[in-house]
Design a binder for these strands. Sequence first.
DNA 1: ATGCATGAGTT
DNA 2: ACTCATGCATA
Length: 349
Amino acid sequence: MMSLNSKQAFSMPHGGSLHVEPKYSALHSASPGSEAMRRACLPAPPQLQSNIFGGLDESLLARAEALAAVDIVSQSKSHHHHPPHHSPFKPDATYHTMNTIPCTSAASSSSVPISHPSALAGTPHQALEGELLEHLSPGLALGAMAGPDGTVVSTPAHAPHMATMNPMHQAALSMAHAHGLPSHMGCMSDVDADPRDLEAFAERFKQRRIKLGVTQADVGSALANLKIPGVGSLSQSTICRFESLTLSHNNMIALKPILQAWLEEAEKSHREKLTKPELFNGAEKKRKRTSIAAPEKRSLEAYFAIQPRPSSEKIAAIAEKLDLKKNVVRVWFCNQRQKQKRMKYSAGI
DNA sequence: ATGCATGAGTT
DNA sequence: ACTCATGCATA
C-alpha cells in the first residue's frame, strides 16, 4: 500500500466542458515491413534454457509436454475432444460484463525504424519443438531497416457520451532528430533517443512529479489541459508504465515530449500557485476482469516457452484443454508477446 | 503496479 | 489474425 493519493486539491471552476473534439492527426507513417524486421530483431527466447532442466521446472515442462501432446492429437482430429481433466464447472472467470460503453479506446500505430540490437536465435529444447512446432515460422530474413521514419502516435477515440471517459487523441510528435550524439554501436541504428536518456528522464519525471504532489492519474488527466494538438489525456496505467519504463521503446519516445511539456507547465504553475483544472468524473459501468487461475496460467506459460505464436487451431485446443475461452487464450498470448518486447531489456545499448 | 481487454491500423 | 498503444479493474 502506498496509495499516494496526494491529489492536489485543485479546484478550478471549469464547468465540465469536456472537450469531445475528435481530433486526428494522421501522422502515422507506416513503414511496411517494419514488422518483419521487428520480429527479426526480437530478443532471443528468454526464459528457460537451463532452468528447465534445473529440476524445479520439470513439472512445468512435463505439463507443457502433456498439454502439447493433446494439442498435437487434436490436430489429427480423430474423434473426441473434451478435456480429460474434469472440471466441475467452467472456471469461466470470463464474465465479460462488458459495459456497453464503447468507451475510450485508442489506437495508434507508430512505425519507427526501430532496430533492436539484440539478435539471437537459438532454441535449446529442440526435441520438444520438433513435435510441437511442426511448422514453426521459419526464417527471419531481417536485415535492412527502413530509412528514418517519424515516430508518431495518434489516438482517436471519441467519447461517445460524456462521463466516464476522457477524450483523448494524441498526436504525434515531432521528430526533429538532430543527431549530434556520438555514434556508438555499430549494430544500433540511432533510433532517436537512447534508452539511457529515456531512463534518466523517466526517473527525473517521477521525482519531480512526486515533488509536486501529483499522482500518476493526475498527470494523465492533466495532459488534456495542455492543449497540445492531438494530445489528450492518458491513464494512470500509462503514466506508471512510462515511469517504470515498461512501455515499448517507441511508445516511450512518443510520450516523452508530452510528459516533458506537462512537467514544465506544472512546475511553472506551481511557482505561481496556480493549478490546472482537473477534469474527470466517472461513474458508470464496471467491467469485470478475467482472472486466469494459477494452474492454467502455468500451462499457458509452458506453452508460450515452446511456442509463443500458436496457430489459431492450437489456441483453440489449448483453450479447450484449459477450459478457457479461446479469445482469452489468444489475448493472453498477445499480451505475453507484448511483455517480452517491453523496454527495460530491449535497451541493450 | 499489473493483468486482461479493446481497437485502429497492418499484414 | 497480429501488433501496438492504452485503458479499466484489481491485487
